[in-house]
Computed example of a mutant assay.
Amino acid sequence: MEYTSGAASWQKVIRRAVAGLLPRRGRQRRPGWSVGVPLIAAAAGLLFTTTATTAGGTALREDRRPELNQLIEERRTQVEGNERRAARLRAEVESETAVLADTDAPIRAQQDRAKGSEQAAGLTALAGPGITIELNDAPPPGAQPLPKGVSYDDLVIHQGDVQAVVNALWAGGAEAMSIMNVRVLSTSAVRCVGNTLLLHGRVYSPPFKIVAIGDPAALQRSLASSKGVRWFMDAVDAYHLGYKEDVSTVTVPAFEDSTALRSAKVPR
């Protein structure tokens, strides 16, 4: 539909409305409905013009989801670019520090002290015996309706499921851990948005793979004794969620994100 706007169009609408209201000589008085028609036409013209101005050449009811997907993709590209720039700057700082350490004994001492804490801080890649856990959504129900009392929300992995496994592995003595091949620390936050995992500013889709280095027997005992993991295993049996557990020699990468803390509290 083409909307009419502009001063000339408004003048025509007003002239027609006024002409319809004025009596004409030599003719019988017009009925009431003929007086209302020009007023309705004027109101319709005002409505169409206002709509056209508001729309600005776009559809008012247009689906905004493609724009949201594009915005998410743009932000993801921006985060990846910032991460590459941060990695380059860290490498430059380390290089300059190494040059200064050759001629400055205090800097050399602090550098050696920092290197001695890198493994404990998770800044080095590690390999050793451990366990791999994989969590996955349930298969789609297909054409069959869901059983009574079951919703699609029951068929996906949630934040609590991932957190229960992670907490059980830490409690079982895990020395190092990664989620989706991203090194996580005790301060790493696990967040889920829908059925996707948000970790260190990146979004991951299921299946979610969790790798932990440690005594496999101790890790398995901790998983079996965890209340949260037992609840999840009940859901595995009831809704056919995916759960795989594999013991082998595993590798976890070094932590590459920022180690700065916004706030901290000394335990008492």
Results as ranks from 00 to 15, higher is better:
179 I>N: 05
158 H>S: 13
190 V>W: 01
189 A>I: 05
210 I>V: 11
192 C>S: 12
172 G>T: 12
189 A>T: 10
188 S>W: 00
213 I>P: 15
179 I>G: 07
205 S>E: 12
190 V>A: 07
185 L>W: 00
202 R>M: 05
185 L>H: 08
209 K>R: 10
213 I>G: 15
202 R>E: 06
193 V>G: 09
176 A>Y: 01
182 V>G: 09
164 A>E: 03
185 L>S: 12
169 L>S: 15
164 A>G: 09
170 W>F: 14
184 V>P: 07
202 R>N: 10
165 V>N: 07
164 A>C: 14
195 N>G: 11
183 R>E: 06
203 V>K: 08
165 V>W: 00
163 Q>G: 09
214 G>C: 12
208 F>G: 09
167 N>P: 04
169 L>A: 13
209 K>H: 01
175 E>L: 08
207 P>V: 06
197 L>F: 05
213 I>T: 10
201 G>W: 02
160 G>F: 11
206 P>C: 05
214 G>M: 04
208 F>K: 11
172 G>L: 01
162 V>P: 01
170 W>L: 14
204 Y>L: 05
203 V>F: 07
191 R>T: 12
188 S>K: 03
200 H>G: 04
211 V>G: 15
210 I>Q: 11
207 P>H: 08
197 L>P: 11
178 S>R: 08
191 R>I: 02
194 G>M: 03
214 G>E: 12
196 T>S: 14
196 T>C: 06
208 F>I: 10
182 V>F: 02
178 S>Q: 08
165 V>S: 04
180 M>D: 07
188 S>V: 06
162 V>Y: 00
209 K>G: 01
214 G>Y: 02
184 V>Q: 03
185 L>E: 06
209 K>L: 02
167 N>M: 09
184 V>E: 02
160 G>A: 15
194 G>L: 01
180 M>V: 14
172 G>K: 08
166 V>Q: 05
183 R>L: 03
169 L>N: 10
209 K>V: 09
199 L>Y: 08
160 G>Y: 11
192 C>M: 10
200 H>A: 05
175 E>W: 00
159 Q>Y: 02
192 C>E: 03
204 Y>F: 09
180 M>P: 04
179 I>T: 09
167 N>S: 15
181 N>L: 06
212 A>Y: 01
210 I>H: 04
192 C>Q: 03
211 V>C: 13
198 L>D: 13
179 I>Y: 02
159 Q>E: 14
186 S>E: 10
195 N>D: 09
179 I>R: 09
202 R>D: 05
187 T>S: 13
209 K>C: 00
158 H>C: 05
190 V>P: 04
161 D>K: 07
199 L>P: 11
184 V>H: 03
213 I>E: 14
194 G>P: 07
190 V>L: 11
188 S>M: 04
187 T>M: 07
197 L>C: 13
187 T>R: 10
164 A>I: 08
197 L>N: 10
193 V>K: 07
176 A>P: 13
184 V>T: 13
204 Y>W: 07
161 D>V: 05
